[in-house]
Nucleic acid binder design. Sequence first.
DNA 1: CGGTGGGTTGAGGTATTTCAAGGCTCGTGG
DNA 2: CCACGAGCCTTGAAATACCTCAACCCACCG
Lengths: 223, 223
Amino acid sequence: MLVNNNAASASRQCALGELGELSRARINLSEFKYRRGAEIYGEAEPADYIYQVANGAVRSYKLLSDGRRQIGAFHLGGDIFGLENGPAHRFTTEAITETTVRLMKRCSLEHVAEADVHVALDLLNMTTSNLEHAENHMLLLGRKTSLERVAAFLLEMDRRLSAANVMALPMCRRDIADYLGLTLETVSRALSHLHGMGILGFIGQTQRQIVLLDRHRLANVNL
Amino acid sequence: MLVNNNAASASRQCALGELGELSRARINLSEFKYRRGAEIYGEAEPADYIYQVANGAVRSYKLLSDGRRQIGAFHLGGDIFGLENGPAHRFTTEAITETTVRLMKRCSLEHVAEADVHVALDLLNMTTSNLEHAENHMLLLGRKTSLERVAAFLLEMDRRLSAANVMALPMCRRDIADYLGLTLETVSRALSHLHGMGILGFIGQTQRQIVLLDRHRLANVNL
DNA sequence: CGGTGGGTTGAGGTATTTCAAGGCTCGTGG
DNA sequence: CCACGAGCCTTGAAATACCTCAACCCACCG
């Protein structure tokens, strides 16, 4: 009942299991609900809890003093976030849509980690997954064209939240842009372009539901 | 004698200590020397060893199929690199200059980590440091101007390798460019610009020795 | 109904890239 | 010893990918 593996995230399967494992270690979890746009925690705030998305979606980002924003990751159903080693959070996180999270006190986790090697190794695995994601994202941000970035984003989301071949993006164009290091107009144009190429289709009136028609061509955009 | 803390890296102090700690756990280290440009390991190769820079400098990078390169990190004296959780390396690494590294078998490390919580927590700490660096670098690559990127690079290198107020960069402009997601010409122009602003000076005939004249203005470039 | 929050599209501007030329240093070989 | 080429760096001019600004559309909602 505490850990309700509701499918969704194909990536981070490990993360999914681990909060389960931690909960088995008799640490109590509580749930909390955030309305869309609500801040969960701020950058540099003390990191007292770790979180798991039960339902909804979360963005975590850094800001420059003049408002430029870089989203480091989106957290979808099942994902764990807010896990820190130091004393403070390194990102600000906000609920993208109505989101419910499970949270646990961080100190209890640390005690368990110090006592149990397996928990420590689980934390290492989770951190490594995050690192790997960040490393791939550096390549995207540093060296890929706008079309390649949007294509990579679509493939990532497809992998992580596609149900029945159609993905319902929880985030707006501006979020996508700040994730990909672009402007929202450029993202929109890239999507239109891919649409025009017959690589993807939009469903319904809203432009947030996308179906990938040709994953292979999407993966090799620009070639 | 095995672990010879030769100053240098102010960052990653932890990393410095930890290979020492691991060596105390009676794992034998051997040294190896690479000439400049030599590959230490390739992306996707099996990760059988972990490495520590004894002397010199190393770049680790990813390549796109058409040759675009993104350097994820520079490893300087004392830094540990090549630490993986999965079976394979995620970057290619090359010696930037004549470099000697200490290396140890990875399997022995894993046995120790499974047995000793402290070693596992040390690995977690190192991985977290790497993650934090990558997170900051995503912000740089996604949202900073060329001048801000070069300034950030100089401050990072100043922190990590400045001796007596002058830093001798081991890497060429192209390496810097591929680290910052720019072209070598843009890096060169940014450095000239900072030079013209009186923020930094060049020493000697070579353009690799740099002295920071005004760290505060460098940190607030563009403001 | 009017306002707000997305989203798209066009036109023009600009930061960075691309292309090209030239200079300096250093090692090598005649 | 000098000539030569390779590697590295700088600088200028032209090209371009992406950004900025602006207009417009649509859905939703009080």
